[in-house]
Design a binder for these strands. Structure first.
Length: 887
RNA sequence: GGGCGGCUAGCUCAGCUGGUCAGAGCGCCUGGUUUACACCCAGGAGGUCGGGGGUUCGAACCCCUCGCCGCCCACCA
């Protein structure tokens, strides 16, 4: 006997351990099996499971389990990302907290050893947590971006791109994170609006004492590095000044006034200071005019030694204050205005202001790689779901900038570049190869120094789709599982990751990395607020698993996964789906208590009772919907269809109808109903398994104890393949009417507010010929049902006072139960409603435009509707007349 | 500045290519000890589908416009 409720806490760990130990997570080794593969978006090794992972992992697991059951060689490949900067910072912080010496004092090798230690200790956290969700990853294939194999792939890709001219080293302005003292990419910078100031500064015109040109700036400290002042070539105010010089205040240097389109006469004063080493626009202006690049900052954003002595060593913001004060003192500050502006911050901390800074870095020619990546999506070789994200992807790809891939941190893939004594660079996969090439170059051995930098962490994750499968080796996995089938990830990393994978995979494998990208929404709290620690509204998926069970959380994630941008998650929602699980559990208990066990050799195609033919068809319909939905990676649609079927069809009607049959005298019908019910439950378990693996597996095991033995666990059981011939249209039509009739009857009873003790007999007298036929055909079932519900059914009682309603007509013997006046009013209202319906419909049909232009089916529908309404109206009118006679 | 989304019952959301589309869950109200289930059962109330125009025989769905809300991108001195 099944327990009263499902206990996830004991069942889930047990089942997961059984699955994992039995090796079913690995793709089946049948060469004939069609491959299906997903690579996990690798979480940071330092990470732990958050609600967004729960959503993505649920989706990936649903698809993997579904395809596994469909007989495919299904692989869900797990792994983690070394997450260069993030991990390095975390370990540094941890070392500091435990009183260790700093990273720089420790030295590179010792520090990296510490990070590996950290990884060894905490790197498995998220994988353990994923298991609690039921993730059926093939853990034997787990990868880490710094694994030997993956690192080899990184070196090979880097070297190849370099030899192809698609990676180069160049001195350019980069986004510099002064606290970490590393370059970051454009994507790692976030512009935030702040209330700042704009200062107007007078630059004295050389040779014309008392005359100034006023420039406006939000960053006065950078004036120490000014190389020019620019005005628009057509700006009449400054025509005579073009070509002249100004004496740069404080720095006391002469710089030219130049004409450049960049200066916008509408903005500020129309004259703009040009600081090529500290501003991206100015850098371009400087290049156009051959201006010197004057860097005035140290790597940690203090004023350096090119500046006047007074400011040297000052922090950039302190220097700003000092410079403004000094300008004011010498009367060169014309004014200051409050100014709302966008300031670039470090994307992670949102605290550190990013500086444009002049350094040597390695760059990927993204524009060249983007071409094929754009074409692949245009041609539909990779499809985004939902498709709106394709626009975002195209927009970025078509305007892509060179990608700065070098980082001045230690934790990561060291750039495979070596410098010779004369600065010649040798880019090779190994030091030995570099030495060999250098020997050839110099004619003798020269000492080589490897580049200190590591690669952007997204460089290695950009190879994830193929490096994890063994590339550059010609592995069987690579041949079988590349391209992968689906990628499930958040829209927030379209640029960081999806786009880079597209570019790098297409370039090196010649094919897309995945056929479909499912973009998941951002999960917010129930009020639509972003989850954040400071707001205290973060929900921990593991807590939810503890409280409601993994299946409930999974069902919730699946059901909500259709949302494009935001998912507002509430506990009530999860409770609702937990209740759904309980409902299923109880349905299974009902089956068990009523002897609905599986029957050896049972053939669902051969059932004869209308209710069994009907539920067989409903099951087949649901199976088709669910299968199609999951094929399309629409877990939400599958969840929705299953919820409705299990609760609103199987439990609400099927099991209720089965009760009288099971208790009835017709032994054959009862036996058939038992077998059929068990069969339906079996199908339901299989269809639900991808979404609710634990409860379904548990029930599969429990229901397997009776009847023929199970061939396998549910996780590897075959997916139901129910033919369309299982749908019996006649049975469907009949049951639809029966259900409508019963619903109508319930409604009447309830509206009449009949106390349960009074239980009036419910009679059918005014049914039309069709309804009557159906009702009479099912008289036995209905009688049984009505008996259970305390109602009686009698098609022959002519003495009843008629009552009719839309759908099937039902009648009640009113006498003591019905308020005649109220019933009259009710009927009149019905009649009036039907009259307007008839009027509207006939007007429609009399409209020649409608008949001519509307589709035939629609016209037919309207004709039918008119006929039905007229018939109903006639019946109701007759009933009303009789009711009046009684009253 | 450019782009993209959203605005449908108290709440969170479905409504596919215009033709029963005005829906679901939760919440609320009424009733229920009918041995699967109160994590339940039955019933009910609630919306002029953000405003205004237009196209059409017909619009929540298409077009225009306005209004909020959100997100992404962008070098605005």
């Amino acid at each position: 006997m099944l327990e009263k409720t499902f206990d996830p806490k004991t069942v889930e760990p047990r089942l997961y351990a059984t699955w994992e130990a039995s090796g079913v997570f690995a793709p089946r080794d049948d060469p004939g099996a069609e491959p299906f593969s997903i690579v996990i978006p690798p979480p940071n090794v330092t990470g732990s499971l958050h609600i967004g992972h729960a959503l993505q992992y649920t989706l990936q697991d649903v698809l993997t389990r579904f395809q596994r059951m469909r007989g495919k060689a299904a692989l869900w490949l797990p792994g983690t990302d070394h997450a260069g900067i993030a991990t390095q910072m975390m370990v540094e912080r941890q070392l500091a907290e435990s009183g260790n010496i700093g990273r720089r004092e420790m030295g590179r090798d010792a520090f990296i050893e510490k990070v590996w230690e950290w990884k060894g200790r905490y790197g498995g956290t998220i994988a353990r947590q994923a298991r609690r969700l039921g993730a059926s990853c093939d853990w034997s294939r787990e990868r880490f971006t710094l694994d030997d194999g993956l690192s080899a792939a990184v070196r090979k890709v880097f070297v190849a791109l370099h030899k192809q001219g698609l990676i180069y080293r160049a001195k350019r302005l980069v986004n510099w994170q002064p606290e970490l003292q590393t370059a970051v990419s454009d994507l790692e910078v976030v512009n935030l609006e702040v209330n700042g100031s704009m200062w107007r500064i007078r630059y004295p015109i050389e040779g014309e004492p008392g005359r100034f040109i006023v420039v406006a700036t939000t960053r006065p400290e950078t004036m120490l590095g000014d190389s020019a002042v620019a005005v628009h070539p057509t700006d009449e105010r400054y025509q005579d000044l073009i070509g002249r010089e100004v004496r740069l205040p404080l720095a006391d240097r002469l710089i030219p006034i130049i004409a450049d389109e960049h200066a916008d006469p509408e903005k500020g004063t129309g004259a703009v200071k040009i600081t090529p080493a500290h501003d991206f626009n100015d850098f371009r202006v400087g290049q156009r005019h051959g201006l010197p690049l004057i860097n005035v900052l140290t790597p940690d954003a203090k004023i350096n030694d090119t500046a006047p002595e007074k400011y040297r060593g000052m922090d950039r913001f302190a220097a700003r204050k000092a410079i403004v004060a000094d300008l004011e003192e010498v009367g060169l500050l014309e004014g200051v205005d409050a100014n709302k502006m966008m300031i670039p911050y470090d994307e992670k901390s949102k605290l550190v202001v990013i500086e444009p800074y002049l350094t040597d870095q390695w760059w990927v020619d993204a524009a060249t790689l983007a071409g094929p990546a754009i074409a692949a999506v245009e041609q539909g070789r990779t499809v985004f779901q939902p498709a709106v994200w394709e626009k975002t992807y195209f927009e970025w790809m078509r305007n892509i900038e060179p990608w700065c891939v070098s980082r001045q941190v230690w934790w990561g893939h060291r750039i495979p570049a070596w410098f010779g004594p004369d600065g010649t660079t040798f880019v090779e996969e190994t030091e030995d190869e570099a030495k060999a090439v250098a020997r050839a170059h110099y004619g003798k051995d020269e000492p080589l120094i490897q580049d200190e930098d590591v690669l952007d962490t997204w460089f290695s994750s950009g190879l994830w789709a193929f490096s994890t499968l063994g590339w550059p080796d010609d592995t069987r996995d690579l041949a079988r599982f590349y391209p992968t089938s689906v990628l499930v990830t958040g829209f927030d990393i379209i640029f960081f990751w999806v786009a880079r994978m597209m570019m790098l995979s297409l370039h090196f494998l010649g094919d897309v990395p995945f056929r479909k990208v499912v973009m998941t929404a951002l999960i917010r709290d129930e009020h639509g607020q972003k989850m954040s620690k400071t707001k205290g509204n973060v929900v921990d998926p593991l807590e939810l698993v503890d409280e409601y069970g993994a299946d409930a959380l999974r069902f919730t994630m699946a059901a909500l996964s259709g949302q494009v941008r935001n998912i507002n998650l509430s506990r009530q929602r999860i409770e609702g789906y937990r209740n759904f699980g309980t409902k299923l559990w109880n349905a299974a208990r009902f089956c068990q208590m009523n002897g609905c066990a599986r029957v050896d050799g049972f053939d669902p195609a051969a059932v004869t009772h209308v209710q069994n033919r009907w539920i067989r068809g409903e099951t087949a319909k649901t199976c088709a919907v669910v299968t199609e939905a999951l094929e399309a990676a629409r877990a939400d649609e599958a969840a929705d269809a299953l919820y409705r079927f299990v609760w609103n069809v199987f439990c609400d009607w099927r099991l209720e109808f089965a009760k009288p049959l099971l208790a009835g005298d017709d032994a054959a019908a009862a036996a058939e109903t038992r077998a059929m019910t068990a069969w339906v439950l079996d199908q339901v378990l299989a269809l639900l398994h991808p979404i609710m693996p634990f409860m379904t597996e548990e029930l599969w095991e429990a229901t397997g104890r009776e009847g023929p033995p199970r061939d396998s666990m549910l996780i590897t059981a075959p997916w139901p393949d129910l033919p369309a011939s299982f749908i019996d249209e006649a049975a469907s039509a009949e049951m639809e009417l029966v259900i409508a009739a019963i619903s109508e009857g319930r409604s009447i009873r309830s509206e009449l507010n009949v106390p349960p003790s009074a239980r009036p007999p419910l009679l059918v007298t005014e049914a039309g010929p069709r309804e009557r036929r159906v009702l009479e055909a099912n008289a036995e079932s209905i009688r049984q049902l009505l008996r259970v519900s305390g109602l009686r059914f009698d098609a022959a009682d002519a003495s009843a006072v008629p009552f009719a309603a839309r759908g099937a007509a039902l009648a009640l013997p009113v006498a003591e139960f019905i308020d005649l006046a109220a019933e009259r009013a009710r009927l009149s209202k019905e009649v009036a409603a039907l009259a307007t319906d008839i009027q509207r419909t006939s007007a429609k049909l009399n409209n020649p435009d409608f008949v001519a232009r509307a589709p035939e089916e629609v016209v037919d529908e309207n004709r039918e509707r008119l006929a039905e309404a007229e018939a109903s109206k006639a019946r109701l009118e007759a009933a009303l007349k009789r009711l009046e006679a009684v009253g």
